[in-house]
Design a protein around this nucleic acid. Structure first.
Lengths: 237, 237, 237, 237
DNA sequence: GATGAATGAGTCTTCATTCAT
DNA sequence: TATGAATGAAGACTCATTCAT
């Protein structure tokens, strides 16, 4: 357990650093020059650097094949430095995953069914595209999360599970609503939402992780799975 | 690496023992009594027992959380004995996965489109149900494989990848054929086959691994995803 | 935490090995030859060897200055081997101390005040001599325990404390009895027992640990502190 | 090792500051105003504060269980600052012990046997009481020193040893003198002085460290051990 | 003087595998 | 064949000390 709580880590790339720290012995007059701010920035840069390196390695070899030493070597940093910023390998992993899951979550918006809003189907497509874009912008993390399937242990499992369930529940809710509005046919929302989510994962795996697709391709793929999900494979009579 | 190649392992429980061993010291006159056969049987029983134990543990904790010691303890066998039967932990894992994947493969048959055959859709549903049944009969392995997502390293990744690709290619072939026959609409077979496979994985995860479903439920779930896949969610106008 | 409970350690030197083990997978017929017994003996010898080495090192440098590596080097044993026998450095220390304290305890007998028994004073002297002999036979442990004063942490502190308190309480009981019998003067048993115990420790430290005294010297020293304790320094008028 | 020798530390609380510093940058004209003196005072306050904190922590957890970080946290001082005042953890420990031992030493006076002086026994009791008072006023240090028994390594051992030997030699000298004067009986001064010193340590441990005694109690305890030392336990016939 | 990020040697511990019996 | 003690490489983590700002 760390006695000095590790400071907040700057999110690696799309880092929105909310510079508002301060604490510790320097209770006196704050240096007018930005020395403190600068120190803070440097610290966060270091954290971000370490996370970036770790992310790349976790995605390349797996988590278990990546040793702290690997990260150290790749980052060109001493052993202790890493522990100055993180509680250990697992903590880095968690930081990465948490931040990534949060990004995904924030890309999803509830479908607004008020008549004045954008058509629901459009909203769904937008959501889909937004999520795919986030995944695409974080290929390494997408790879890590999709391939780790669940996680490293019970705790991680629970987190991933909860995340997917949340996503699926959102989808299921939309389906139920769609049914109620007569938009959707007589489906079993639970099963269908599972299948849809699974399909999405697989498609993301193939088009984002396995091959790196450009935005245009992604849009095409999104549209295709949407069509498939909505209308199925069968030829319309 | 062992100097003497370990003999073939008996598949654990639903063991399709391809009895074709023989080699080693007893190359001379075979004792008329079944002593050799008995020894062979004992060996295979041991192997099977070890695999069964390992399977259970790999499914419970993950692969990396399972130590050889755990297996030893659970099997009530000495350290050296295990290495007499397998080349190590990883070899046991591979043996389990290979045997499982083979079972799945053998549950899938190519769709026969000759006019005299069973209707293609029926064949697809049968295939689906057969696979689900195999998974259901091997919950632990299903759990292991679905949650391990890819594998432990590059080699294992390749194996899993190849397996899924094979499955998907089969499906894709069927889709292409269906398109050609005018049965299916203007779909992109690659993407749709990915989505379908992904959906299948997720549903299997939820209904076989997470909750243990009875045959009846499985049938219902299969039918539902089939309907969804074929006709989509939208209400038919 | 060890999954396989470490087997009982043979006491290092004055090892009274109560050979009665057996457990584990070998539930079948016991080999008539003494292979199992032999294995057990070897194991205990190894344990004893490690303890002996550790004892010497703990006594020489202190506990904290002794690394596992030091023990390994001195014993000519591989890293894992040590952990096969003990849960770690601390466990070895505890094993040593526990065994030593037990030896001391068993050297002390309650003073029998029944008229038919040996004279109480003689009994006390015998006790004293027995304890000193045990200490003398275990110089390294005596050094460790006397210099460690309390211990390494709260837990060890408590153990040492309890041990000394027990010893002192015994002594105090004897004093109270002596007072009641009119043998002893108007003393405060608590304080006097503390002082006597402390004196004993110091003398042991000087005559056993600092210089190695022979039996004869030890007897002389015992007699002297007994005289001093009983009659004080003052010249008898 | 520091290139610039750290200035003398102010003793923590009952500080006998031997103000004899000076050196360094201000070798030129001394500012008439007390800026230098003020800086010096601040420095010593810092040092004292750090020592006080360290003392408390060393007494609470042991030396080895106390990390520099602990001291830093408790003192609210930055890492580098501590090294500005001391050469490190060990140096702080030594500073504390040295200062404490000096206090004890200065509480002891040689017994004056000239006829005109206070009665020797009275002098001894006074000495005893003075030492106990010093210990009592420095409970933390008493705890540290009595429980550390010897020290952390060979060097520290030697120091403690020498200190106790000096004390004991003083006592032994008194005993020899007492014998010569016919005041004391036919004792072995070496052994008896050891026993007496050991008794003293133990009693101090119990009455000062374990329980915090008031002055009155201490006086009573001193008197008791003196009586015991002089006259022994036996009832006077 | 003060700060605290960086350092890296030092420790402990685990565990898959080997091999003599 | 079976056993289990021995191995030692590999890994994670700590912490006293340094030093640029």
């Amino acid at each position: 357990m760390p006695r000095v709580p590790k400071p907040e880590h700057a999110s690696p790339e799309p880092a929105v650093v909310l510079s508002e720290e301060r604490s510790g012995p320097t209770a006196g007059a704050e240096p007018v020059d930005g020395r403190v701010a600068r120190a803070l920035r440097l610290r966060q840069e270091r954290s971000a650097q370490l996370l970036t390196v770790a992310r790349r390695l976790f995605a390349g070899r797996r988590y278990h094949q990546t040793s702290i030493q690997d990260i150290l070597d790749a980052a060109g940093v001493a052993r202790g430095t890493l522990y100055l910023h993180f509680d250990g390998k697992r903590a880095m992993f968690d930081a990465l995953v948490d931040s990534f899951l949060a990004s995904i979550r924030s890309a999803v918006t509830l479908v607004d069914v008020s008549p004045s809003a954008t058509p629901p189907l459009q909203q769904i497509e937008d959501n889909l595209l937004r999520v795919m874009t986030v995944l695409s912008e974080n290929r390494d993390m997408t790879r890590i999360v999709l391939l780790m399937a669940e996680g490293l242990d019970g705790e991680a499992d629970a987190k991933m599970n909860e995340f997917y369930e949340r996503l699926r529940t959102l989808l299921q809710g939309a389906l139920v609503k769609g049914c109620a509005m007569g938009l959707l046919g007589p489906i079993e929302p639970e099963i269908v939402s599972q299948a849809a989510l699974g399909g999405l994962k697989e498609v993301a795996l193939q088009w984002i992780v396995r091959r790196e697709s450009d935005a245009e391709t992604l849009r095409r793929v999104c549209r295709e799975i949407l069509t498939y999900s909505l209308s199925g494979m069968l030829a319309r009579s």
